[in-house]
Amino acid sequence: MTHLKNCQIPEQLRPFVKAIYLMQAPGTWEPPPHSRVLPDGCVELFVNIGDTADSFEVNGRKINGSSFITSRMNCFMDISSPKQVHFITVWFYPGRSWPFFDVPMSFVANQTVCLSDIGKSQAEAAKEMEQRVEAALSDEEKVQAVQEFLIEKLSRNYRAEESFQSTLTLIEKSLAQVSVDSIARAVGLSHRQLLRKYDRCLGLGPKEYIKMKRFLTASKLMKVAKWSLTDVAYEAGYFDQAHFIHDAKQFSGMTPGELRQAKNVLF
């Protein structure tokens, strides 16, 4: 089985990073054929500190590269794991990954992209980080090299986006039961300004983000509550079962009933 070790998050990164893990599995384990990862609006950075020949496959495509990101906006991903796993993973909060990458987040939305393919400046910074990781003697020193890379990127690129962050808070507090127009008015932005900020900082439009968050709420309720699917849909804010079924097929590729019974689904 895969072992996850929680690593301490430096204070500078805590507003942006949800978790940092050391992910490791021995070559003797038998990974499942694939795991389906549901969209959650998050970006995750993977740094391979093992054999780079042992790569993940995402939606049937082998990912070649020492460091890459997955952007889970509004499409599910089927991930196949190699037998030998040794990665550092950095899990960003929704809408908080943009200072660390040199492109609008819409550029990488719903994709798995090697850092070397994002742009020249990103490729150069990633190469330097990978060299520092490779030179480090222990796993802890390798994690520190990744953390220092992120802190350097943050110091160069960050500028406050208070209005954008406020909209994410409004959506979270309302349990995704709010309109795009109402959140734009609440933060004093025009509809066009709001769309531009979501394009750059999140990579997904506000309407689609609200839909995804509502579905994610319903998915979690299905797993923890013994309610009927009708009650789950109502509690998550759906007007009817038909909309719930539509979103389930879009975001998971399954009906709600199939999703409730599915194994190896991660969210």
Rank of each mutant, 00 (worst) to 15 (best):
H3D: 15
H3F: 12
C7K: 12
C7G: 06
Q8Y: 13
P10F: 12
Q12G: 07
R14W: 06
P15N: 14
V17S: 03
K18L: 08
A19P: 02
I20Y: 07
I20Q: 06
P31D: 00
P33L: 15
P33Y: 04
P33N: 14
P33E: 12
H34Y: 05
R36F: 03
R36Y: 03
V37H: 03
D40Q: 14
C42P: 05
V43A: 02
L45V: 05
G50Y: 04
N59I: 07
N64Y: 10
G65T: 04
S66K: 06
S67P: 08
F68E: 00
T70V: 12
S71Q: 01
S71P: 08
R72E: 10
R72C: 02
M73N: 07
S80M: 06
P82S: 08
K83P: 07
Y93K: 13
P94E: 01
G95S: 05
R96D: 09
S97G: 02
S97C: 09
S97E: 08
P99V: 08
F101K: 01
P104Y: 09
M105I: 03
A109P: 00
N110H: 05
Q111E: 12
C114A: 14
S116M: 08
S116G: 13
S116L: 08
I118L: 10
A123S: 15
E124W: 05
A125E: 07
A126D: 11
A126L: 10
A126M: 06
A126H: 06
M129H: 07
M129S: 08
M129K: 02
Q131E: 15
A135C: 05
L137V: 10
L137E: 11
S138M: 04
S138C: 07
D139H: 13
V143N: 11
A145L: 05
V146H: 04
Q147L: 07
F149N: 04
K153D: 11
S155L: 14
Y158C: 06
A160R: 09
E162W: 12
F164R: 02
F164E: 01
S166I: 05
L170Q: 01
L170V: 04
I171S: 01
E172K: 14
E172H: 09
E172V: 10
E172F: 10
S174V: 03
S174R: 08
Q177V: 06
V178T: 10
V178S: 06
V178A: 03
D181K: 06
I183Y: 05
R185T: 11
A186V: 04
H191M: 12
R192F: 08
Q193E: 10
L194S: 11
K197C: 12
Y198A: 03
L202Q: 02
L202S: 00
K207Q: 10
K207M: 04
K211E: 11
M212A: 03
L221V: 02
K223W: 09
V224A: 11
A225E: 14
A225H: 04
K226Y: 13
K226V: 02
W227D: 00
L229C: 02
L229T: 01
V232G: 00
Y234K: 06
E235F: 00
G237E: 00
F239H: 14
F239C: 13
F239V: 11
H243L: 13
D247R: 01
K249P: 00
S252M: 05
G257D: 06
R260Y: 02
Q261K: 15
V265T: 05
V265A: 03
V265Q: 02
